[in-house]
Every structure is written in C-alpha cells, then in structure tokens.
C-alpha cells in the first residue's frame, strides 16, 4: 500500500480501449485527451503516457488522410515486401512514419496483417492488397487520389 491512497484500477482493457478510441478519432493522441483519459479512468497520467508510448498502434503525430501499411512480416519480407516499400518511398517521397506534403498519405510498416498467403501485402486504410508487385502500386495509389478528387473508381483489385 503506497503512502498516497490510490483509486481502484480501471476495468480490464479499459485503458487500451480508450487509447484506441482517441487514436481513431484524431488519428493520433493529443495531450489534452490523454490528460482527460487519465482523469476519467482514475489512472495515473504517467501510466497513460507509458502505455501511449509503448504500443506501436498509437501515434503522437497527426496522420495523412490515408495510411498505407506495407507489410514486412516474415512471409512478405521473404517475398519482397521491401521492394514495395522502396517503390512507395520513391513514388511518394516519404520514409516510413512520414506523411506526404499534401497530407494525402502516411506510410508505415507493419509486421504482418495476417494475409501471409498473399504475400507481399499492403494495407491502405481498411483495404488489404495481396500478391503485389512494385509495378502495381501506382494504380492503387491513383485509386485513392481519384476518390479524393470526388471521382468514383471501380477499379477493384
């Protein structure tokens, strides 16, 4: 028992759920929201901050309108996932973790999205693209650009 009495711990999974909710709403974790979460859940701010910096799913930087996750899990790595990343880097001019100047795309890497049989794989927002090759990327990017421009693309992969 510490000298300063502690509030009861939050319900199981509550802190993670809250961090997910904040990250989903803002695309990152704003300081104010973390302070509020600590207060409302009765969790020390240091604990909230520790968790926020520990888990890869959370970001402290605002993101682009679309997030691209290039898979570098084992299956994808063995079948050339790095090439996709390299092509993407040169096409968009950003490195993993960075966002394009027009804020359209944030590029990230991920260790497996569970579609290993389709490797190499990339995920854009919620859509997963399998059996990829570097030369197929421009078409996929164009689809998201066109969506933004208001045009509808029916280019199913």
């Amino acid at each position: 028992m510490p000298l300063i009495p502690q509030p009861p711990p939050p319900a199981g999974g509550a802190l993670l759920a809250r961090l997910h909710a904040i990250n989903a709403e803002y695309g990152y974790l704003p300081e104010e929201e973390l302070r509020r979460a600590a207060e409302e859940l009765g969790v020390p701010l240091s604990q909230v901050y520790s968790a926020a910096t520990f888990y890869a799913a959370f970001s402290f930087q605002p993101r682009g309108r679309h997030t691209i996750h290039v898979c570098l899990g084992t299956a994808c790595y063995i079948r050339g996932g790095e090439k996709l990343l390299e092509k993407l880097e040169s096409t968009l001019g950003v490195r993993p973790g960075e966002t394009t100047d027009d804020r359209a795309f944030t590029v990230e890497t991920v260790h497996c999205v569970g579609s290993c049989s389709m490797s190499p794989v990339m995920r854009v927002d919620g859509d997963t693209y399998g059996r990829l090759r570097a030369d197929l990327l421009p078409r996929i990017l164009r689809k998201y650009r066109e969506q933004e421009a208001g045009g509808v693309s029916d280019e199913g992969m």
Binding site: A11, G12, G13, L16, A17, H20, Y55, F58, H111
Partner: peptide, 10 residues
C-alpha cells in the same frame, strides 16, 4: 466475455 483489442506489441 470482454474483448480487448491489442495495440501492436508482440
């Protein structure tokens, strides 16, 4: 049953 979503940590 409560479902907890992980957050990207092996």
């Amino acid at each position: 049953i409560t479902i907890v979503r992980g957050a990207g940590a092996f």
